[in-house]
Nucleic acid binder design. Structure first.
Lengths: 333, 333
DNA sequence: ACCTTGCGAGAAAGCGGTTTCTCGCGGCAC
DNA sequence: GTGCCGCGAGAAACCGCTTTCTCGCAAGGT
């Protein structure tokens, strides 16, 4: 490897141009008010020496890094990837970069990870579904400016962008009900996950309005493999339709059922949640609740931007999922 | 929003513990050799004041940020997401974070983006398929330590991790040939993309060994939409099999053909490239060249780690794709 | 001719750490 | 009793940049 670069410093440029570092700084930042010839000389020196200010030193002096953190449970999840991709693009337009981290290997460290990464930047977009409400409320103060994702109702002066899981799962259940299904099974997510809680409550509300429906809940997970693993239990449940925690689980479940010779939607209907890009290309195409992940990223940046500028968090928003009926659901046999 | 936090500084801890900042620094970094009681007092003060050193200030003093950049053409591409996810996990184990950026909105700025983001951190993992060889060679020096992805052969003292597109596409073509296909069409990627060049050369090499095969090349792209858009042209080509630039294009193409009433693999066989997680769940499941993206991320970190430690870039590695035969290919009618 | 203004630009003090250099002090050898 | 050594810990320089403070100097007013 080539010897590590030693970048030219502002002092060198100053010496080269025969001015003080202060002047170079002013010229570089457009705050220079003196003679144009001096500015020109500084610019020429900077050019010649291939100078560009150290973001680190600037950050220290200015107290701002032009970087924001993005922390989610699992970067491998396409839903979060969609948010990240759009957040990164939005931030880039304002000259900000995004620092990423996930807590998949150590769920209990959500707070520690967020705290650590937050110190490296100006603000944080956090999705911490497993952090207890009380702990989160306390953490918000230290993490601010912060945009919280998927924690509807947690309040406490943070900007909040969430998905109405309750409504989404309700819609899915209504859809299945309308098709004629009366025995449902819910393939749950992580039991400690807040968003799983909202789904459960949504289903409970649905059940309250439909006395003729029975619902069984099966422990599931968040990944394709989790879905595949629960296929046998779903078949054993005798249900005619399964609501999966998310699209990944649904896809895994469908293929797991396929391996057991159970056809979808012939024998069992299956629904997902998220509408990841591949939901529509799955075989059969997945009926799901569509979540506007890109919009979430864009809005997250907007909030972030106003917060960093010293603005208020603004109102919480609860994105309404849109029922996306595809081929994985059909009337029961 | 709550007033912006003012973190406690090392000076405050020093004052509180009745020692000098130097001592606090030494204690915090385990370089303290004096009386244990002093260290204990410092630790207690740090605890009380909830002190943690500013990574920014540390970075400036130490000349290291414990951050690496990850720059790719498009963060929305699942292939890159897989690499990022695994890179981030690997880096995290060593206490490093990953800063991301993509150049999808301004392909010509690949170099500018890489240069800018590189200054914020210690090293960079770069995938810049559209950057001219000469420009890249020149840039490497400024960007080092750098791990280059998908630029086999570019050398110049950078660590290089690549996919053997040439071999991969060759395998796919051989597979189609073995099935009996003689009229092929290649749905190309961006013409300025280096990896598209390797694929073209791979196909040319294949053709040289099979005089009875005709190959047409169609302009395509990189996304599902690009694949869908080219469906009509593929049908019009009269070919019995199509090799798509990547899995996304293949998936789009398959569904585009479906809309035109052309069945896959009944009427036309289709292959992809990458083996993204959804390739196997597509309908029909996609025959493709499987690329070890997670492994790429892990290895990228390994290289990075040794480079940052002052080590040598090591040998270039060319990952061999594995032919993954699924349901999207079959003998021609 | 003298005192203000005002402007252009440098000196220096941070930002929050790390690290080299220095120094006081107690213990040991002679 | 004196000199030297070593240890513990503080003073100060430094990382690279920003910004307030300061100052010299030329212009303008009386």
């Amino acid at each position: 490897m080539a010897a590590r670069q030693r970048r030219t410093t502002i002092a060198e440029v100053a010496a080269h141009a025969g001015v003080s570092p202060a002047t170079v700084s002013r010229v570089m930042n457009g705050r220079f008010v003196g003679e144009e010839s001096v500015a020109e000389r500084v610019r020429a020196s900077a050019q010649t020496l291939d100078y560009s200010p150290s973001p680190l030193a600037r950050g220290l002096a200015l107290g701002t890094t032009r970087t924001v953190a993005f922390v989610v449970p699992d970067l491998a999840n396409p839903a979060f990837q969609a948010v990240l991709s759009s957040l990164s693009k939005s931030a880039a337009r304002s000259g900000y970069r995004v620092l990423v981290a996930d807590s998949v290997e150590t769920p209990s460290d959500e707070l520690a990870i967020a705290t650590e990464i937050r110190r490296r930047c100006d603000a944080i977009v956090l999705c911490a579904p497993r952090m207890p409400d009380a702990q989160l409320a306390e953490a918000i103060e230290n993490l601010a400016p912060i945009v919280l994702i998927n924690r509807p109702g947690t309040g406490h002066g943070a900007a909040m962008l969430s998905i109405d899981y309750h409504a989404g799962v309700h819609q899915l259940a209504e859809h299945l009900y309308a098709l004629g299904h009366r025995r449902l099974v819910y393939v749950a997510g992580p039991t400690t996950s807040a968003s799983d809680g909202y789904r459960r409550r949504g289903l409970k509300a649905f059940l309250a309005g439909h006395e003729d429906v029975t619902l069984e809940t099966l422990p599931g997970g968040v990944s394709v493999d989790d879905g595949r693993a629960v296929a046998e239990a779903v078949r054993g449940s005798g249900a005619t339709a399964a609501l999966a925690f998310n699209d990944l689980v649904a896809i895994g479940l469908i293929h797991g059922l396929g391996e057991l010779g159970v056809s979808v939607p012939g024998d069992v209907s299956v629904t997902g949640f998220d509408d990841i890009p591949y939901a529509r290309y799955n075989s059969p195409a997945l009926t799901t609740a569509s979540v506007p992940h890109e919009e979430l990223g864009v809005q997250a940046w907007d909030r972030m931007d106003t917060l960093v500028g010293g603005g208020e968090p603004g109102h919480s928003v609860l994105f309404q999922p849109r029922l996306e009926v595809r081929a994985s659901t059909a009337p029961p046999r």
